[in-house]
Structure formats: C-alpha cells, structure tokens
C-alpha cells in the first residue's frame, strides 16, 4: 500500500451569516448536493464526484470564516498513531465523539500554530455518487451551476508558518510541494500535499491567526472555469480575480466570494506530485507571477482580504 496516513481534505466547516443565501450559493451556483442537516441547523453538502457523505458543513453565525478543516485518514490505526504523534509533538488535542457531525466517526481535533483548528478522522458514511460504481456513466445529469466535482483544498492565513510546516511534514507526513521565500530565507508561503495533488492545504504567513483565505473546488477543464465565470456574472456573484493562471501549482482559476464574504475558488489543472520530488521555490521578487502568472503583479485585495 503506497497511500497511507492522511488521505485528503475531507471536510471544511464554514461559517455563514445567513443560511438561505449561502445555500443558494453553494447548491444552485456551485452545484453542490445537499446531503443532510442536523438539529443545530448545520447543512451538509458534497460535490457530485465525492463518495463520502459530506465535504462542506455550513453553520450560521454572526461572523464568517472557517470553523475547522478535517482530513480523512486511511484507518483507525492511522488515526490512533497520528493522535499520539500530535500529543507527543505538544499539540492541544481533543477527541470529538462519533456522530457530532452527522455521519462522521470520531474526530481528533487539534490546534495548529497558525491558529486554525484542524481535525483527523477515519470514518464517514459512504454514500457513493449518482453515477454509481457499477458500469458508471462519466457524469450524472441534472447537476446545477458550476457543477463542482469536489471540495479540494483551503488556503489559510496565520502566524508561525515555520512551526506549522514542521507539524505538517514531520508529524502528519505531508510533503512540502511549493514555498515562497524572502531574500533573507524566511518562508512566507507554504503548499503541502498528502496525495498526488500539487496541494491539499496551503498557508501564508499573516499576523492575525486563524483566517480563511479561500476554500477551493475542483472543475475538470478550463472551459468549465470560463463557464463558472459566466455564471458569476449572470448571478452577480462578486469576482475577486480571474479566470487566470497561477504560477504556484499551475492551476487555472477564478476567485469569487460567497454571500458572507468567504472567498471561494474553482480551478482545474495542476500537476502530479510524487513524494520523491524536490519542492518548488518561489522568490518573493517573483511573487507577482507566482500568484497570477499573466498579471505578473501583486494584487492587494487578493493578498489582504480574508475572513
């Protein structure tokens, strides 16, 4: 077995200020499927190509942002092993009982040095996809809006990036795929993968802890990114920037905001990561094209607007 330990970002719990407009955004516009809700009023969503019960959890609150980000691990043995490793590393670790999120097994919750709350879990209800697994058609009919395949990753902003990198690489077993480095060798941006993707989570060094820069969703093609942009104008969704190309990860992308001001991305196309690769390094003097390969200049709103 070559794929062990942490598998992928499995759920992202997002605060929204009003549930109604948020559901219109994530269901009608992004094309996610509602898979449940609970007694606390939280709503559970997944992309059409995701097999587990949910990947996005929306909660109504008086300020937007990220509650927590959960990663699925391969087995309960991995979960126990990583929980112990986190405790030995000195992280504050808490066990959340099975069922606290509907359909999810017990979760190991911990704080990371950037001020974000992360979770690991091994079990979540398997609901499959509308195409099924028996002689499936390539995609299901009747999807709405941008037809996002799946929740893919988050970019988070917070302090103590070096300690966070240590945690992700040496405790959780991620690889550093790309980094942004200042002339005095300080790492101010770091992209980590636990899979074959160019990134499963990314961080930018930022004074204020625990901030969400964006939650990202996968599309299949550049044409689908353009189609998503068209839908944003049709429905007056605020566009941040794009469609364009990233230098970092090579993704083809557009950024926009949900009705509570949480930034979303839909993107397609990165490269295949293998853990025997060397990380890519971007120098801060080239940061413009590292971020937006065509603009080639720094974009203050993209760099500074977070929830």
């Amino acid at each position: 077995m070559s794929f062990t330990g942490v598998l992928r970002p499995g759920h992202c719990a997002i605060r929204v200020m009003e549930m109604g407009p948020a559901l219109t955004h994530y269901i009608e516009r992004l094309g996610m499927l509602k898979t449940g809700e609970d007694a606390e009023g939280r709503v559970y969503l997944k992309g059409w190509d995701e097999h587990d019960a949910f990947s996005i959890v929306l909660r109504e609150a008086d300020s937007p942002g990220l509650d927590y980000l959960g990663f699925k691990v391969l087995s309960n043995q991995d979960l126990d092993r990583l929980e112990l490793a986190l405790r030995e590393h000195g992280c504050a670790v808490e066990r959340i009982p099975a069922g606290e999120l509907k359909g999810c097994g017990h979760r190991v919750r911990f704080q990371i040095p950037t001020g974000h709350t992360l979770e690991l879990y091994a079990e979540k209800d398997y609901v499959g996809t509308l195409t099924g697994n028996q002689n499936p058609h390539p995609w299901p009919e009747g999807l709405k809006g941008m037809k996002v395949c799946r929740f893919d990753h988050c970019l988070l902003y917070g302090p103590n990036l070096a300690d966070t990198a240590d945690l992700f690489v040496n405790v959780l077993g991620f690889s550093l795929s790309e980094r942004v480095v200042t002339p005095d060798a300080q790492m101010i941006g770091a992209f980590f993968t636990c899979s074959n993707k160019a990134h499963d989570i990314a961080f930018i060094e930022h004074a204020e802890p625990g901030k969400l820069h964006h939650a990202s969703f996968l599309l299949n093609t550049w044409e689908e990114v353009l189609n998503a942009a068209d839908l944003m104008s049709m429905h007056d969704i605020p566009i941040d920037i794009g469609p364009t190309r990233h230098g970092i990860t090579r993704g083809r992308t557009i950024y926009f905001f949900d009705p509570s001001g949480n930034r979303n991305e839909v993107f397609c196309g990165d490269y295949t990561w293998y853990p025997d690769r060397e990380p890519i390094t971007w120098e801060t003097e080239q940061l413009g094209r590292a971020i937006f390969y065509h603009d080639r200049k720094l974009n203050e709103n993209f760099l500074g607007v977070v929830t």
């Binding site: 300020s63 001001g261 949480n262």
Partner: peptide, 29 residues
C-alpha cells in the same frame, strides 16, 4: 473594495452626515 459580502471589513466607513440609512447583516467581528 473587498469581499462585497459584509465579511472582510475592507470597505469600513463612518457616516458623518446624512439624511438616514439602513444596514444589512455584517460580520460582528
């Protein structure tokens, strides 16, 4: 201009004079 959704706080202003206004839901943060 920031998120345009009442979330990020970039477009913070103070009404210093005027003949009335209302606001929609904004981040308490």
């Amino acid at each position: 201009v920031g998120c345009r959704g009442g979330g990020c706080g970039i477009c913070r202003v103070q009404v210093v004079a005027g003949a009335g206004y209302r606001t929609q839901k904004m981040s308490r943060a």
